[in-house]
Amino acid sequence: MTPAQADHARADTDPSDRYSEEGPAGLVLDTPMPADGAALWRIARDSRVLDLNSSYSYLLWCRDYAATSIVARDTSGEPVGFITGYARPDAPRTLLVWQVAVDERLRGKGVAAAMLDALTRRTGAALGVEAMETTITPDNTASDRLFTSFAERHGALVEREVLFDAALFPEDGHESELLYRIGPIGARDDEAPSLPGPAPV
């Protein structure tokens, strides 16, 4: 049995560590496992938009950051979309969304938005997440729409600033990465919104 198969077996026998809910287009929104890593790498590669990380990094992400990530599975159980994220070490109530990708045949069906909402619910309940961060390059209008719409649905503010200037990247042609900070997630209309700071240590 390979390590990936062993992980699948553990997940099947210990459902208390799993998260799953129905998503749009007949999909299931689920907790990623290391055996999903190769599929996530392929989806990222085929997006032709995301920076493609090593295949090994996706395997590690599905092991070490499964609680702050999510996959969308089709009826055969294969991943057709994913979000990878992590809780900020110095601000554990803030979820940093690393990558969002959906298989080309399912784009435009609300899959990315549904994954983002589901991941927010899960991390809010399990980890007390109150804010979200992500970085977007100025030319990525699809991601801007996704996260701006998310903020509107959740009654949250969006703050934008340059996180990493283009000059910091070693390769030519890399655009600056703009930090989007969204929060508080789920604020009521009658509350004066303000973004939460780092959690007390």
Rank of each mutant, 00 (worst) to 15 (best):
V49A: 09
A167D: 15
P15T: 14
T94K: 00
E159L: 07
F164E: 13
T94V: 11
T148R: 09
L116S: 07
D30R: 13
A11L: 08
P200T: 14
S194N: 02
R93Q: 13
E22M: 01
W98T: 10
R88W: 03
A87P: 06
R10S: 08
Y65R: 12
G128H: 03
D46E: 15
A114P: 00
D17F: 11
L60A: 11
L127I: 07
S47P: 08
P200L: 10
A25G: 00
R181W: 05
A142F: 00
T135S: 04
D64P: 04
A9H: 10
R10C: 10
A67L: 10
G85L: 06
L119R: 01
D144K: 06
T137K: 01
A192I: 12
D14K: 08
R153Y: 01
G85K: 00
V129R: 01
A199W: 08
R181N: 03
A151C: 03
E161F: 13
D51P: 05
L96I: 12
F147N: 03
L29Q: 01
E191V: 08
D17C: 08
D144Y: 02
S143R: 02
F164V: 15
D14V: 11
R48S: 13
A167C: 04
D7H: 07
A4R: 03
D90V: 09
F82V: 03
Y180K: 06
G183I: 00
A199V: 15
A125S: 15
A192K: 15
M1I: 10
V129Y: 05
A166L: 07
W98G: 00
I83A: 03
Q99D: 11
F169A: 09
L157V: 13
A9V: 10
N53R: 14
R93M: 12
S57Y: 05
R121H: 14
R48L: 13
L157T: 14
S69L: 04
P170I: 11
G37Q: 02
L59I: 14
L52H: 02
A112N: 02
